[in-house]
């Protein structure tokens, strides 16, 4: 096994060009578990820990937000970024423990592409774009396309996730995650909802091979909320019911498909209601 401790993005890209199959290690919160358990034995590692450029976020002139792939979740929970993207702050706070949030990143969340990744419903609901670079090229891919399936992405060998850009998201946004413990849980189901007037965007996590959007529920919401109407309790329930029909959860040792379906319906409904009374 070899390791390159990259200090700059260019360092990392050069190392990747040489060994395109290198394991990219950012916070280590997923890959190190695999290595500790002997399930991953990479021949080459490129550590991104030392790359300052990846640990930054900035507000862009058009109102969108760039978030470096190496920015730890702890930096999203409070402060300027949290003010711009409150749903991301709420999602970040549910990630693991404080120790995990000091290490874990959106780059890792995207690269690992677990359906239960806590940041992913936010990126999906807010139509974020993933920036990829290699030594010879760069490209931007919508999150929707980037996430292909369970632990499968469009990232090609030799490519590095540099960051994501979240377009301006006026209006309300919020996040909810269902787990049976009050801290440190892997999502049984999660949801991010963004609403600007009657335009509702909803993404669900942990209830399909990848994070899903709910176009039918979003259309139903637009109709319910047309003309500035507030949703009744029944409206919200119907919205949740439609959303839950747009996912395909599995049963496993963490929960059952039936519960996951029920839970996303409940949290989607509650998020819609919450978007009106904070």
């Amino acid at each position: 096994m070899t390791i390159v401790n990259a200090r700059t993005i260019d360092d990392a890209l050069a190392a990747l060009a040489e060994r395109p199959d290198s394991l990219l290690l950012q916070g280590g919160t997923d890959s190190m578990v695999q290595m500790n358990f002997g399930r991953l034995d990479p021949r080459a590692v490129v550590s991104l820990r030392g790359i300052r450029e990846l640990r930054e976020w900035r507000a862009l002139p058009d109102g969108s937000t760039f978030i470096g792939s190496g920015l730890p979740y702890a930096s999203m929970e409070k402060g300027g970024l949290a003010a711009r993207l409150p749903a991301l702050a709420e999602a970040a706070r549910t990630v693991g423990s404080p120790q995990i949030r000091a290490a874990g990143t959106l780059g890792g969340n995207l690269g690992t592409a677990s359906p239960a990744g806590d940041g992913l419903p936010v990126l999906r609901a807010l139509d974020a774009t993933v920036h990829l670079r290699s030594a010879t090229s760069s490209r931007d891919v919508p999150v929707a396309e980037f996430l292909v399936g369970v632990k499968r992405t469009l990232r090609a060998p030799g490519e590095l996730i540099v960051g994501v850009t979240v377009p301006p998201a006026p209006g309300w946004q919020g996040y909810a995650k269902v787990g049976v413990r009050n801290a440190m849980v892997i999502a049984i189901a999660s949801a991010c909802l963004a609403r600007d007037g009657s335009a509702v965007r909803l993404a669900l996590g942990a209830v399909a091979p990848t994070v899903v959007r709910c176009p039918a529920a979003e259309r139903a919401a637009a109709a319910m909320l047309a003309g500035g109407r507030r949703p009744s309790r029944d409206d919200a329930r119907e919205f949740g019911r439609i959303a839950s029909s747009e996912c395909s959860p599995i049963s496993d040792h963490r929960s059952t498909a039936a519960y996951r379906t029920h839970a996303v319906a409940v949290v989607a409904a509650r998020l819609l209601e919450r978007s009106f009374h904070g």
Partner: peptide, 15 residues
């Protein structure tokens, strides 16, 4: 920053 040392590849902590 308080982190879990089991999740830090030691060789990546150089510096």
């Amino acid at each position: 920053a308080a982190v879990c040392s089991c999740l830090v590849l030691a060789a990546s902590a150089e510096g």
